[in-house]
Structure formats: C-alpha cells, structure tokens
C-alpha cells in the first residue's frame, strides 16, 4: 500500500488535508474567538487492528461518522476529556456538563471539525462524500473484525488551543476500494 503512494501523491494528499483542516479550524476559531493550532497531517497505511489501536487512546471521547459517495469510509474524532469543559465554556454551554450536554457538545464539535475536514477534502478532489450523523461510541467495544478491508489509508490531523487543554484529533479512514479513486484524482491534480 505504502508503495502505491508516491512522494508526489503523498505531498498532494498532505497539502489537501492542510487546506481542509485550515477551513475546519477557521469555522471553529470564528465561533469561539480563539486561535487554533494545527498539526502536520499524518498519512499512513493501516490494518484494521492498527486502526482500532490508533483510536483506543485513553482520556478521550470518541465519535464516528461514516461517509458514502464516490469515496467511502469513516471519520472518527477524538476529543480530550480534560479539554471538554474549556471548549464547552467557549461555545457557551452551561457548565458543569451533564451527560446529555456533553454528548451534544461532542457531536457538534464532530460536525464542525470532521465535517469541514471531509467536505474540504472531497471538494478539492471533486469527489462526493456524504456524511452520516455522528454518534458517540466506545472504542473498547470495537473489534478489528468489524472492518471488511485488510489494509487502507488513514489521514490524521490534530487541533489544539494553546492555553487550554482542548485537543481534538480527526482520523479519516478510506475504504480499500476507494483508494484507487483517490489516487486517480490526485494524479490528475498533479499533471
């Protein structure tokens, strides 16, 4: 899989993710009037067990959304538990968070960040990807057997707010069958 992604394609993918996460960060930054620090996107080839391992970080809340269209896959967002109250306050939620309002917050953040990341990405590649509603889930209950692919591409980005414990990771995981579609589009951008 790694070999299938050449240097130029990796560069392009990374830059497309940079642009998409820039758009996502901008929507959140305007909402909360704070500056958001962006990571360099990590692009890797993963097996289902590696993907599950990637998600099972402690101290995080998880949401997931699947997407369908000319590319298919899943977007998972991880929000640091410690940073939840800080972001909730900036987003004018009533504190302390109850289970219900926390879930509402997680789903809203997931929509803002994951939604913008995916739509920016798809738009630049002229691909369609329609996102389902996000749901909160527990990665402990996730089994690698759930996935129908053997090896796929994951793209991971991280958003932070300095001076607060807010930390949010978005992982976009493409289905194996969608990789060739993605590579074709990347190549036409690079021509």
């Amino acid at each position: 899989m790694n070999n299938a992604l050449g240097d130029e394609q990796r560069d392009a993918l990374q830059e497309l993710m940079n642009i998409s996460m820039g758009q996502a960060a901008n929507s959140l930054a305007r909402l909360i009037e704070a500056k958001i620090t962006l990571s360099i996107p990590k692009i890797s080839s993963v097996t289902p067990s590696e993907f599950v391992a990637m998600l099972s970080s402690e101290g995080m809340w998880h949401t997931r959304q699947s997407f369908l269209g000319s590319v298919k896959g899943e977007v998972v967002s991880l929000q640091s538990r410690l940073g939840c109250e800080a972001i909730a306050e900036l987003m004018e939620y009533q504190l302390p968070l109850s289970d219900t309002t926390r879930e509402e917050l997680l789903l809203e953040l997931s929509n803002i960040l994951a939604g913008a990341c995916l739509s920016g990405f798809a738009e630049q590649l002229a691909l369609t990807a329609k996102l389902s509603m996000p749901t909160v889930f527990d990665p402990e209950k996730l089994s690698p057997d759930h996935y129908r692919w053997a090896n796929t591409l994951s793209m991971e980005v991280e958003f932070k707010i300095e001076s607060s414990q807010f930390d949010s990771k978005i992982v976009i995981c493409l289905e194996e069958d969608s990789i060739s579609t993605l590579l074709n589009r990347l190549n036409s951008l690079l021509e």
Binding site: N18, I19, G22, A25, N26, A29, R30
Partner: peptide
C-alpha cells in the same frame, strides 16, 4: 497564500506588511 485562514493569522500577516492574504486552494 495560506491554508491557515484564521482571523488571527490574517491579522498578524497584515501587521507585518504583506500586500495581500489569499486563501488556499
């Protein structure tokens, strides 16, 4: 020409005398 299009970035760029701030793509 930047992917980081947050208001903060634009403000800083303006204060440092850039002629224009364009968004990627």
């Amino acid at each position: 020409i930047s992917a980081d299009i947050q208001p903060e970035a634009k403000k800083l760029v303006d204060s440092l005398g850039a002629f224009r701030f364009l968004h990627k793509p």
